[in-house]
Each structure stands twice: as C-alpha cells, then as structure tokens.
Design a binder for these strands. Structure first.
Lengths: 338, 338
DNA sequence: GTAATTTGCGCAATCGATTGTGCAATATTA
DNA sequence: TAATATTGCACAATCGATTGCGCAAATTAC
C-alpha cells in the first residue's frame, strides 16, 4: 500500500505545517527563509515517504516558466530531422527541459497554427525548422527566445544554425565537373526552403565557375521525397539530353533516383553517376557505395540548444553555418574526354 | 502596431465586462449561460482584433487537463520509432493534443525518471515503448491512461499494441529452412525487450518445428545497434561452424551485418544469406535486394492512439498484435542438399 | 398594477504552488 | 530586567482562467 501526498497542502497537513514552509524546504530555500534544520529534515523525510511531486502546472503558472521547448520540424520520419531531434533531446534533458514535438508537414498553414498553439502553451523557447514560404509569423516581436534550424530568412533577425549548404553543393558539383561530367542534372527539394535555395545556388555557381554552359545543367523537382526523386529521374532519362550525372539534393531524393535507375536497368556509375546531399549509414553498403555530403546533424542540434540558452540568458548570439563533409565513395565515374 | 490582449482580464476591461462573460463566450458557453447575442458578438470581435489567446497553463490548472500526451520511446533516431512517432503525431493532432517527447535511451533509470517527470506535468495520457527490465513503475495504479507500444509485459495489465513478432520471426526462419539452410545464426537486440524475446522465440520454435538440431542454430548479440550487428557477424565468421544464413532481428543490426560481410569480402547471398526484421525503403535498392519482415509502423501508431482515447473515455480496450508482412527479395540463396 | 418569470451578467472561490511581509517566541545585549 | 535582535514560521496575495451561485433588470402573466 503506497501512501501518497498529492498536493503540497496535503503534505503540509501531515506535517502540521504551512504549505509555505514545505515549499521553501523543497525548493532549497530553507536557509534563505530561516527554516530550522530540524523542520527541514522533517519535511524532506515526509516528502520522500509520501512520494510527493509538486504539480508542475501550478508551478508553471506561478513561476511564469514551463521548462518546455517547442520543436517544430517538417517531418520527424526524415532521418535528418530524427537525428536532429535526438541531439536536441539529449541536450535539453541535461538542462531539465522537455520537448513539445510538432511536425509541420511542410505546410505553412500548419506552421502558423502550431506556432500559436505553442505560444499559448507558454513554451520557454522555440527551435524551428521553418518551411520558408512566409516569415512574418516568426518575427522577432514574438518575444519568445527562438533559434531557427536548417532553414532561415534574411529578413528575419532570429539567429539560425544550419549546414553551409552552398559550400556543400558547390563542392559536390565541382567534384562532378572535375570528374569530367559536363551534363549534370540537379534534382531539388522544396523550392522555397533555404536549404534548397542555397544548394541550388551552390550547384549553379560551381557550374558557372567551371565554365559549364547553362544549357548543360538542369534543375528540376519540387519535393524532398523519394517519390520526387523517382519521377524526376524517369523524366530525365527520357529527355534528349540525358545527363551523365545526377546530384540529388537530399537523402530521400537520392533513394528515389536509385529506384528509378534500378528499374530502368541502369548501373551506377557505369551508365550514370550520382551524388547525394545528406549522408546515411547504408550509403557505404550500396553497390557502388554512394558519394555524399554529410550534414553535421548532431552538432546542429547541440549548437541550436546552446544558442537558445544564450538568448534565454539575454546574451548575444550570432548565427552559424556549419561545414558539411564531403564523403567520396564510388558512385561517380571518371569520364575521359569525348 | 499590433494590439494584443494578454489576459482575459485585459480583454474584459477593454470591453467593460467581467472576465466571466468573456470566458463563457470564448468557450462557446454563451447560450448555456444566457449571454446575449449582442454581447457575444462584441466579445468575439474584440478577441480577434486584440489577438487574444487564453493562457493554456492557467486553463490546464483550472480544468485539470493538459491536452498533452507523453510519448516515451528508446530512440527517436531509429527509423522504426521515428515513423511510429510521426503516425502518433498525426493522429494526436486531429484530436488537438500535443506530444511531450522523451527518449529513454533504453536506460531503465532514465525511464523511471522520465515517467515521473511526465506525471508531474499531468499529461492526459501516456504512450510508452518500455525498455522491459522492470515494469513495476508502469503499473496500473498510476491512474493515467496508458498504452504500451512495441513492447509489453505479461505482468502488467496496461493494454498494448505491437507487431506479432513471434509470427514474423517464425515465418522468416521457416523460409530460411525451406530454402535449405540448416546452419542459421540469429543476431538479437536488447535481450530483455518483449520484441526481442518474441522474435527469438519465433526463431527457436520454427527451428524446432522443422527439426533443426539445436546445435545448428545460434542466438547471439545484445543490442539493437549497427555496432552489435557488425561485431557479432565478425565473430560468427570466425567460428568453426560458420552459418549459411543470418537472421538480423532489426534494421540496425542488419546494416551492421552487411558492413561486416562487405568488409570481409563475402557476398550476399552467394556466400551467406540474410534476412532482416524491419523493412527500410532502401532495402530494395541493395544488391541483392534484402528480404525482410515489415512492421506496420503507421498502423501501430494509429491503433495506439485509438486505444488511448478509448481508455480516456473509460471504455474497455483489448491488446492487439498486428500482423507483420514478409517481403521476399533476393538475399537468401536456395541451397541444394549437401 | 403587482407578482412571477426570465434574461443577462458579475462575484468570489477554485485549481496548486510560490513569496513578500508580518508577527510571535526565543535569544542576546546592556 | 528591560530593550533589542534574531529565529522560525505562517498569512494572504498571486499567477490566469473557469464556474456555481446569486442578484438586479427586463419581461411576462394574471
């Protein structure tokens, strides 16, 4: 038979004391408020035997603080965001904060609604991977500490942390060109996201810097999904100017590309080369192992939390672009001159 | 310049009314409490122009209800749980509930601590994939609606929903045996989890039913990780009785197995066959495509939420084992008799 | 024209914990 | 011993929204 005290008042009655005293002891304020050692010990003892846990809702209301952080991401089933979420969770746990998890499903309407739900719940801070179509609802006068992840806005002054997507795409594209590829197709994700824009920019810039004619490169696609990678690849294969290499702008798209190629009986890299943005553990297991650009997901999560706490402590923070890692494997063929 | 009313009192003052009236109108109780249409409209109008959002913390306290569900899983970066979480999120959003996400990292201590944190936060319900070492802290007298996912206890009376792991493993093992394999190694995950126990049970039972001598089968490993799959495979390869087939009890282990085989220069299925519990989108892309057992993650998530709401409505629920799907691909060799 | 209804809304308590302030009882000082 | 200082704790307000109950004013009934 378990004895339990549900409220601080119940516990106080058991002790024949006032809730005030109990509260002060349990919050380590005994000394500050001159509670005698004897009383303090009594309280702690009873609190333990009666398994008292203060009602956090009441505390939140009184203290105007919830120890809760809202995490808004497009899709938790995408490994990139899942890993990010894990990193964030681990960091926040260290600080005794909990996560309210919200998938925005890459729908701006949902993003706005969800945001206001989180605000009504008085989260202490927000970590957001915004969709990117609108930014006004994320503006600074929300007054809630906020860090943007993976995607951000020039207009918005909220600090952000993300992979240096431009650099990653530039590097990968340069690599393809150096390997002799002159006909390159880039399959992109959601066009309005920062990540996508910067990757496409890196792709175009590298093509230009290496003097590839614009007519030799293509950018198509519209979604960070397997489906999108699949259908866009099929389209590319039917086009008159079939590319010799495909650059997939995330891991899901890359999977779609591979499906389409496999189905079409084309071999990587003999028939067509492939590079993927986003690394996955199984890429090295493929035949051939897939060349990719690894995003530092754990560091992004860690850094985002660090920045958020800086803001909560009213310290200044600066945005951050973390370096991607280029992982060369065997999915790109060395082309000799025509 | 945005005008905002922070509290119901502020809004009431603007309207020269009492907070009572405002509250009643905004909660759709106008009629019940005989608030005139005129007044009701005035309130709604001002509430909109002043963007009033009631403080949920205060509501939670007063209503003794948080509209929050605690989701405890071992590791959100595992695709199985990530997909599960997504399904749960989508279902809960429909019911205007939010998720407090907690990784237990497969540590029982953390599970216990996290549980009491969630209880102190007065979640309306719990969805838990328990670790399985202890169940007492999850006992029914927590008085919180609760559904166990993926893993469960005979001792615990809380209802659960999971894949029929026994059936899945039995099916896969039978398949291997029918393909002529007589020397089979099973690499398992966390030994005390229900999922693992039942999979191992299915493996053993199938071996017995098909008259495989016990000395021909082996069960080793201790963790649902890539690392574990990798090291256990290397051990198996060095053993005197090298198996002709490996049964990996989850997707992470399967990846580890493939890494080890690749590194050792062994080909699937020519040199050794492989079946994986858990399906992944890229399995069909591998060479050869990997034969696997698919768990219905989305349905598990949906069903868990459905059950949880039944409990919250004081209806009876019965536990559920959902059927896995066997996906035959090309990673198992047909062995002729020796 | 008066009594009985009905309409329309506000008072004050409540949810459970925290905290500024005050007031006895005890201890110290002179 | 009286005056002062210190110790030890409790009262009551507060966070913001909800709700049982009650009380005027307006309406209807007779």
């Amino acid at each position: 038979m378990e004895k339990k005290a549900r409220t601080i008042k119940e516990l106080a009655d058991l002790l024949s004391m006032s809730p005030t005293t109990v509260s002060r002891v349990l919050n380590g304020q005994a000394e500050k408020y001159r509670i005698s050692q004897k009383t303090a010990l009594l309280v702690q003892e009873k609190a333990k035997t009666y398994q008292f846990e203060p009602n956090q809702i009441a505390r939140n209301l009184r203290l105007q603080k919830t120890n809760t952080i809202g995490l808004m991401i497009p899709d938790i089933s995408n490994p990139f965001f899942a890993n990010l979420a894990r990193a964030v969770e681990i960091e926040l746990r260290k600080k005794d904060k909990m996560i309210l998890l919200c998938d925005t499903n890459d729908e701006t309407t949902l993003e706005e609604k969800t945001l206001s739900l989180l605000l009504a719940r008085k989260v202490d801070g927000l970590l957001i991977a915004p969709i990117g179509e609108k930014w006004e609802h994320l503006s600074k006068d929300l007054k809630v500490p906020m860090v943007l992840i993976d995607r951000y806005f020039k207009e918005n002054t909220a600090p952000y942390v993300a992979t240096n997507n431009f650099e990653g795409a530039y590097r990968a594209t340069s690599y393809l060109i150096q390997k002799g590829h002159k006909q390159i197709a880039c399959i992109q994700g959601l066009t309005h996201t920062t990540s996508n824009k910067n990757r496409v920019l890196g792709f175009r810039e590298a093509s230009k810097d290496h003097n590839l004619p614009i007519s030799n490169i293509s950018v198509s696609g519209s979604d960070y999904s397997i489906e999108n990678g699949y259908t866009e690849t099929l389209k590319l294969l039917q086009s008159t100017q079939r590319p010799t290499a495909i650059f997939a702008l995330n891991n899901q798209i890359a999977i779609g590309v591979m499906k389409a190629l496999k189905q079409s009986g084309l071999k990587i890299p003999e028939d067509i080369s492939l590079v993927s943005f986003d690394e996955q553990p199984f890429f090295e297991l493929l035949s051939p192992p897939l060349t990719s650009i690894r995003q530092p997901m754990e560091e992004i999560g860690k850094e985002a939390v660090r920045m958020l706490f800086q803001i909560m402590e009213n310290k200044k923070v600066t945005s951050n672009l973390l370096a991607p890692e280029f992982i060369e494997r065997a999915s790109v063929k060395q082309l000799t001159n025509p």
